[in-house]
Design a protein around this nucleic acid. Structure first.
Length: 359
DNA sequence: AAGACGTGGCA
DNA sequence: TTGCCAAGTCT
């Protein structure tokens, strides 16, 4: 079973592997960058980000010396921004502790920020040829069907069992290709909803296929429904500038810039909520004016409806009571401040409104 | 251990 | 439109 699996899978991979910029060579830096970007993110989404990143930060030394601002700007839109901050810190640690290189050792890789069991195994096998099996969402799904594994796969128990199974199935000396082949099969053929079993190289091995149960696996422990929040944001103006605030380094959208504001509580009007938030966050008393726009956005664990309002008047000077920093910037400068999706939409609409106004 | 942590694509 | 999901890690 083990030899047959490796033979069929690697043969399929040789004919069906997508040509990707981080494949076909074993530059550890390129592999590291791609693996971090690919965490919870599709190849198609990653491609343009990968190319820009490699252009701006072509090696560990450049990344280690780059500002967090520059790193976040290139990362803007990719999500899970802690990944970018961790990469910069990891690059600095590589400069200090590893002679400016990515360590060729699973345990050392694991100690670096942003590198967990999956990424350490991916780099170890793909960049350094070490016999380490990777277990990601693709591998879990493929193995759940092949073995089969009939318990929920998104649990610590399953994680451990499937990691053990994957390591057992790994062909010695060919771990990098085998790992990528298993993930490529999951991404192209062994799909979550409608697996394309007629294109699969493993029908002779797959227990689920032979039982006609491929649509029932893998089993997932159900997730909790996500709450919906109503929030407000302020457009504060001073001459031809608007106020933006840098979020604290940790937590949601850490280190990114936003238009200040916050959650609307029960029995509170938008205007009351926004004035209260601006007092709490900036120490200013304000008069809330017209609504500029309404925006909807879904994060991983909650969704929001955001109402942005123009501020008519403000007393006292705004201070960063909750934020890392405040800055009054011209509309044309907004693009150079990294923002999350919803604040970027507001920012772009402000520039558009200004252009329409001038015309 | 369970929840936090983004975004875009697709049914 | 809504919900689900995609090459996980951190706390």
């Amino acid at each position: 079973m083990k030899d047959e699996l490796a033979r069929l899978l690697l043969n399929w991979y040789r004919q069906n592997a997508r040509s990707l910029p981080w494949r076909g060579h074993s530059d550890p830096y390129a592999i590291w960058v791609s693996e971090i970007m690919l965490q919870q993110t599709r190849v198609d989404t990653v491609l343009p980000y990968y190319l820009r990143w490699m252009r701006d930060f072509p090696d560990i030394s450049t990344l280690a010396n780059a500002s967090e601002h520059a790193v976040l700007l290139v990362w803007e839109g990719l999500g899970y921004y802690n990944r970018a901050r961790c990469m910069r810190r990891a690059a600095q640690q590589m400069m200090q502790l590893h002679d400016g290189k990515i360590p060729a050792d699973y345990e050392q890789l694991l100690k670096l920020p942003g590198i967990g069991p999956y990424t350490a195994a991916a780099i170890a096998s793909m960049a350094f040829g070490l016999d380490r099996a990777v277990v990601d969402g693709n591998v879990k799904r493929v193995l759940a069907r092949i073995l089969p594994y009939t318990l929920a796969v998104n649990t610590p128990t399953a994680e451990s069992a499937l990691r053990h199974a994957a390591q057992e199935l790994l062909p010695e000396g060919n771990a990098g290709d085998f790992n990528q082949a298993l993930m490529e099969l999951g991404a192209l053929v062994c799909l979550p909803r409608k697996p394309l079993c007629d294109r699969c190289p493993l029908p002779s091995i797959c227990a689920a296929f032979q039982q006609g149960a491929q649509a029932e696996l893998p089993l997932m422990k159900e997730k909790k429904p996500v709450p919906h929040l109503v929030v407000t944001a302020a457009i504060l103006r001073q001459d031809d500038r608007v106020l933006i605030a840098k979020r604290p380094a940790r937590g949601l959208l850490g280190g990114l810039w936003e238009f200040p504001g916050g959650k609307v509580k029960e029995n509170e009007t938008h205007a009351d909520a926004l004035a209260r938030e601006l007092m709490e966050e900036l120490g200013v008393s304000t008069q809330v004016g017209n609504r500029f726009g309404t925006y909807r956005h879904a994060y991983t664990h909650f969704s929001i409806t955001l109402h942005a309002y123009e501020i008519i008047s403000q007393k006292k000077t705004a201070k960063p009571l909750h934020h890392a920093e405040l800055r009054w910037v011209a509309l044309a400068e907004l693009e150079s401040y990294p923002m999350g999706k919803i604040d970027r939409m507001i920012s772009r609409d402000l520039v558009q409104a200004e252009l329409a106004n001038a015309a």
